[in-house]
Design a protein around this nucleic acid. Structure first.
Length: 578
DNA sequence: TAATTAATAT
DNA sequence: AATATTAATT
């Protein structure tokens, strides 16, 4: 609060009331298309911002020069007759150093990149929605915060921290505080370098790292399954994935990781089954070294076995480990650990790269998130032939599901995830670095693909900001049953098919299908599930442990807040970063 | 060679 | 830990 108010008082905004903070933000909108100008103006006003419009870049520049501090932020189209949007961006950066948001109809990577690299704080794709506009104030705030930080050093932050951790959750008006903080942290790394003067449009600095987002990973898995476990190779996978920017090396690397993950799972599974007495007719002894899970057309017979093993492994991962580490968890949470935090020199890399990669992936595959049932095949041409067989598989799966302890497991998974997230958020020790890169990234995400991004961010947000929500939507504990059933039905219709690499995926798909039909809220929920596999792969048991410390009820709250979206809050990223 | 994989580096 | 990069292997 302190810091926040301070920066606000700094005279940035015309409106004096802190409560109204984002209200009164002075936005200059530049677009040669009067229609868009009107639309934007309307939307921005809805956000209670003070809007000034102009249809020429030169005019905008003139206005800005006239009164350098008459505006807080600039939103400019990229394509304009009189002056290139990038040029304007450059000028603004040079002369008044206001945050600039670029927008355009196409999301061509190079352009987006150019914009961002040259200092645009965000890049929105038209049509722009309220969602995207609501958050723009964050850029302003961030910047200010940044500036303030220079002299204030740490003290301010410390104070903020305390405040946050102590009471933010209960505060109603505290949304800002939370977000601020997060954003602040992030920015620290992110903005340090965007003074590149040289534009041209080529300063790839360094190659972006590929971020294996959930959907990208899903594509990957689909491809793997299609090809057949025994025949997989990076090249083939790459081809099937048809993600242009991805390289064979990228895939190879990911494949390596994936194999590691699978073998780990199998190991766990074996362990489990042997010790616990649960047994499946016979474990997939056949391929010890390999990962039997793939029930591709070629080896479907194994599918049930595979699935079985997976479910078990899941269980073990999620359920077994958690309890054992309780002590550790608590320790982690309670102690302001300082251990490994100070190491975020490369965060900048993240903020820049992430957005792009995500863009790409979303372009390539909105599939899962967007809707429902079908898009899934959109990106790749699947051999429809095996479908029949696939369905069969599905059925089998169904069986195994109902029989196995899966139901119980299912939800716990969700809980765990969200909980862990929550924990990250609230945990004082983690805050600084871990969360850092998020704001930029998330905002960018929003612009590109809000569908994809928002769910994630929302998770974090939920916890902090929206404590109350409909619990009914989420089956807290054992209610998973119904969901499953319905999902199964849907799925059988035409969905699941190829992507059944493992249990998690399978489940995810099921849920997706079922929910797809339902409400948006559920969509978000699905996201949780969707991430499960990916999550496990990346974090394994660790996080789960942590999550144990939290109250499951938190999860229930999550959905509600999803809608709000207004904040692609920082927390989201923590999930990825960890 | 080109692709794959294990190992190693960042 | 996640991805990249290298180097050996096929």
């Amino acid at each position: 609060m302190t810091l926040l108010s301070k920066s606000m008082d700094n005279g940035c905004f015309s409106s004096p009331r802190h409560e109204a903070f984002p209200a009164g933000l002075r936005v200059l909108v530049v677009d040669d298309d009067p229609t868009w100008l009107r639309i934007l103006e309307k939307m921005l006003k809805k956000c209670l911002y003070e809007v000034t419009t102009c249809c020429l870049a030169t005019e905008a520049l003139k206005k800005l020069r006239e009164r350098k501090d008459a505006y807080d932020i600039v939103i400019s189209d990229v394509n304009m007759p009189d002056m290139d949007g990038f040029k304007l961006l450059e000028q603004v950066g040079l002369e008044m150093d206001l945050p600039v948001i670029m927008m355009s109809v196409d999301g061509e990577t190079s352009r987006v990149m150019k914009g961002v690299q040259h200092g645009a704080c965000d890049y929105l794709l038209k049509p722009i929605r309220m969602k995207e506009l609501r958050n723009i104030w964050q850029h302003v705030f961030r910047k200010r915060m940044h500036e303030a930080r220079d002299f204030e050093s740490h003290e301010g932050f410390e104070a903020l921290h305390l405040l946050m951790n102590g009471s933010d959750q209960s505060d109603d008006g505290n949304i800002f505080a939370v977000e601020e903080i997060t954003s602040i942290k992030k920015r620290k790394d992110a903005d340090s370098k965007h003074d590149d003067k040289e534009f041209g449009d080529h300063s790839p600095t360094k190659k972006a790292r590929v971020v294996w987002s959930v959907d990208l990973h899903q594509k990957f898995v689909k491809a793997v399954n299609q090809i057949g476990f025994d025949k997989v190779g990076p090249k083939k996978i790459l081809d099937l994935m048809s993600v242009p920017w991805l390289t064979r090396e990228n895939v190879a690397s990911h494949l390596q990781k994936y194999r590691l993950y699978l073998s780990r799972l199998q190991k766990e599974n074996d362990q489990k089954s042997s010790s616990s007495g649960v047994k499946h007719s016979d474990s997939p002894s056949k391929d010890p070294g390999s990962f039997s899970f793939l029930n591709t057309a070629s080896n479907k017979q194994q599918s049930d076995v595979v699935i079985d093993s997976f479910s078990h492994s899941d269980e073990s991962l999620l359920q077994m480990d958690a309890p054992s580490h309780e002590g550790d968890l608590k320790r982690i949470l309670s102690e302001p650990t300082t251990e490994k935090r100070r190491s975020s020199p490369k965060s900048s890399q993240m903020s820049l790269n992430q957005p792009f990669s995500s863009v790409e992936s979303s372009e390539a595959s909105h599939a899962i998130f967007d809707c429902t049932i079908q898009t899934q095949y959109s990106w790749g041409e699947f051999p429809k032939g095996p479908l029949k067989e696939e369905q069969k598989t599905t059925v089998q799966l169904e069986d195994s599901f109902s029989q196995l302890p899966l139901h119980g497991t299912r939800h716990p998974i969700q809980v765990d995830q969200s909980q862990s997230i929550a924990s990250i958020n609230s945990n004082p020790s983690i805050t600084e670095e871990e969360v850092a890169p998020s704001l930029d990234t998330k905002t960018l995400y929003a612009g590109y693909k809000s569908d994809y991004v928002s769910p994630v961010s929302s998770m974090g947000t939920v916890v902090d900001t929206f404590p109350k929500q409909s619990k009914s939507l989420i089956p807290n504990d054992q209610s998973p049953e119904p969901i499953f059933t319905s999902n199964l039905g849907l799925k059988t219709d035409g969905f699941d098919v190829d992507c059944i690499s493992d249990l998690d995926f399978y489940q995810r798909n099921l849920l997706l299908c079922g929910d797809a039909a339902s409400a948006p809220l559920e969509e978000d929920l699905n996201f949780f599930l969707l991430q499960t596999e990916w999550y496990n792969m990346n974090f394994g048991q660790q996080n789960i442990d942590i999550s144990e410390c939290y109250d499951p009820r938190l999860v229930a709250e999550a959905p509600g807040y999803f809608y709000d979206s207004a904040d692609y809050s920082s927390v989201d990223q923590s999930l990825f970063i960890a």
